[in-house]
């Protein structure tokens, strides 16, 4: 079994406070993993660590030869300025970044691919619309179209279906399952446990500490979820230095 990310006793966090505490394990190539847990349990932090935006406070995180441009990352929407005057098609075309970069022009086949991606997410004919006119669900479809173009072997999704209706969520879930079928590695932070049970072979339950990691049926059990809910929300300002692991 080849592995995309391997984590050896990894601790990620901010200001020395751990948000992901002593996590060990690996994401196999072609795996489809859901990351679940309460708010503040370190799910987003884990994705930031995987893509390399956040260096581990401790431990080793190996990307096994992955380049930066091999990973597509969908953050929570907060960072995107949805009032920005840009059209849907221009947004989707950015998915070609790996080939067009900062300077190269967009070719006709690339343009057609972008239109195809829009069709695939159910937004045929929306190309000329400004993104400001889209609903939250439609905008999420645009971001998925952009990821289709990025054509990356590894895809990280941070709460891709939050604040989105059932139909959109189901449509986009089909895209995710399609990626899995094509042998891509997908890691998605989710809250809808039924969706996880229905579609994700593997699950990681987080509560700042890893609670359980493995086959979804084994992992998503009442005692694990109960354990995750017991997690203390706030960090302790007077916490002692952690003596576990190598430190």
């Amino acid at each position: 079994m080849t592995v995309v990310f391997s984590l050896h006793d990894v601790t990620l966090g901010y200001d020395r406070h751990p948000a992901v505490h002593h996590l060990t394990g690996s994401f196999a190539t072609g795996s489809l993993t859901a990351v679940v847990g309460p708010n503040g349990s370190g799910k987003s932090t884990l994705l930031k660590g995987l893509i390399g935006h956040l260096p581990p406070l401790e431990g080793r995180l190996e990307r096994n030869g992955l380049r930066h441009s091999d990973i597509a990352y969908l953050p929570q929407q907060a960072e995107i300025d949805r009032s920005f005057p840009i059209s849907v098609i221009d947004t989707v075309l950015l998915g070609h970044w790996r080939t067009i970069g900062l300077f190269r022009s967009v070719t006709r086949p690339q343009w057609r691919k972008a239109e195809g991606a829009l069709r695939a997410v159910g937004l045929d004919g929306f190309g000329r619309r400004p993104i400001a006119s889209l609903s939250a669900g439609q905008f999420q479809r645009v971001l998925f179209a952009r990821m289709l173009l990025q054509n990356c072997p590894v895809i990280l999704l941070d709460e891709p279906f939050t604040a989105i209706d059932a139909k959109t969520s189901a449509d986009l879930m089909r895209v995710v399952v399609g990626w899995h079928g094509e042998g891509r590695t997908v890691v998605a932070v989710l809250h809808d446990l039924d969706q996880v049970r229905g579609n994700f072979p593997d699950t990681l339950v987080m509560a700042r500490e890893p609670v359980a990691w493995g086959a979804t049926g084994e992992v998503l059990r009442a005692e694990h979820l109960f354990q995750a809910r017991q997690m203390a929300e706030a960090w302790d300002d007077r916490a002692e230095v952690c003596r576990r692991g190598g430190g």
Binding site: I51, A72, Y73, E79, T91, W97, L102
Partner: peptide, 22 residues
């Protein structure tokens, strides 16, 4: 020359960071 980068950096800075844009 830098128009595309400027617009992306402004509209979706997270994306530019994720694709390793300058």
């Amino acid at each position: 020359v830098i128009g595309r980068g400027l617009i992306v950096e402004c509209f979706d800075p997270g994306f530019l960071r994720a694709v390793g844009g300058p």
